[in-house]
Nucleic acid binder design. Structure first.
Lengths: 211, 211
DNA sequence: GTATGTGAAACCGTTCACAGCA
DNA sequence: TGCTGTGAACGGTTTCACATAC
């Protein structure tokens, strides 16, 4: 077994391939070359072959890749061959939108719990999930099997929310607050920070640079 | 004048510096070294100095950077020394959350228009903005001076929304739909794609790799 | 013939280390 | 002395080009 370092961005690209492959599969297309897939994703064909090579040999020389097979393999690599249970912290505007975001339903993600600090929100039902007080987090995370926590609270409370999730045993966190969070080793945080993206857009519009 | 290529990620880091500098400024701290700022942002000090060096010399050797001055300069570089007018396309769950997201108010962004296809949503007022039909886009973009368009429609409609915005004269687009959009030259698109981030999180949780 | 898989080269971004200056 | 500004070294990612296999 060879140990090669896998660029973290390669993982993101695998997700992009999954999207295009699902589209091809829906159209009934059975075989795809790295060149064709590259066009669909806007990525260099050699890049695609290299990304796949990190994990094995999935293609047939002179032919290409079988769509269903490759889709299955990439999903297995990413861990998308199971259902993931999500817990939400912060049922404000964004949190509510996430709970109601039914598009999660076709992909392997399901909300199983939602938490908030504010008493007036406790007990309300949004997207079929009853909002619980943060004090119930330890218990509910275990009961419902929450594996990934989504943080949709204000910047000031985001770190506290992360700490509570970690303490309750959650190992993966998606943070929507525009702030850098700390977490212990073997816990993972991904940040979704759209104000950074807005700023980048302003820079581009101001300078005309393609960045 | 020297032409050096500026890494696009450097622009994102400038936004991060702005956040930390605003915090320092609020605390009344007047001078900061690259080392101290590096600690706050979780970034290498040499990286910070290099990022700033792309745009000029803002520090004082032996002293550091004057917080207010550096803040002013970086904001000018990013184009954040003005108010930016936003237009929203798609007033569903996410779109509604964005309109109500009052945190935009303290940063230089303001929503001035919102559009939707669905007749039942037209005319409703959300976050002080009246929802208009997409047919009114050409007129309203000019009237209200929309500079940046936010796309919060489903994947199927995202490209159509982008085309309409571009046709109406919008040069910058933030796309929240999980799909790759095409646009003409000198138009800029930034994608906020949290399903890619979720997938990356699953990979990390599955493999235990820090990526 | 055609498309994959992969070493090697090119490219780009980060970090080091120190010269330059207050 | 202390910290910035920056050329050079380093490390990682992307692209090329071709051997390999169907």
């Amino acid at each position: 077994m060879k140990f090669v370092k896998i660029p973290s961005i390669a993982i993101t690209r695998l997700s992009i391939y999954v999207r295009s492959l699902e589209l091809l599969d829906k159209k009934g297309i059975e075989v795809v070359s790295s060149g064709r897939l590259a066009d669909l994703c806007g990525i260099n064909p050699a890049q695609i072959r290299k990304d796949l090579a990190y994990f094995g040999q999935f293609g047939v020389r002179g032919v290409g890749y079988y769509v269903k097979e490759l889709l299955f393999e990439i999903k297995k690599i990413l861990g998308l061959d199971k259902e993931w249970r999500l817990g939400l912290v912060g049922v404000g505007n964004l949190g509510t939108a996430l709970l109601k975001h039914t598009q999660f339903l076709d992909t392997g993600y399901t909300f199983v719990a939602a938490f908030d600090r504010k008493p007036e929100r406790i007990g309300t039902k949004i997207g079929g999930i009853e909002v619980a007080p943060v004090e119930a987090m330890n218990r509910l995370v275990k009961e419902k099997g929450v594996e990934i926590g989504l943080i949709a609270v204000s910047s000031e409370w985001a770190q506290a929310a992360a700490d509570m999730l970690v303490k309750a045993g959650v190992r993966g966190i998606m943070n929507f607050a525009p702030v850098h969070l700390e977490c212990p080793r073997h816990r993972f945080i991904e940040n979704v920070d759209f104000s950074l993206k807005l700023d980048a857009l302003c820079y581009r519009l101001t300078t005309g640079r393609a960045v």
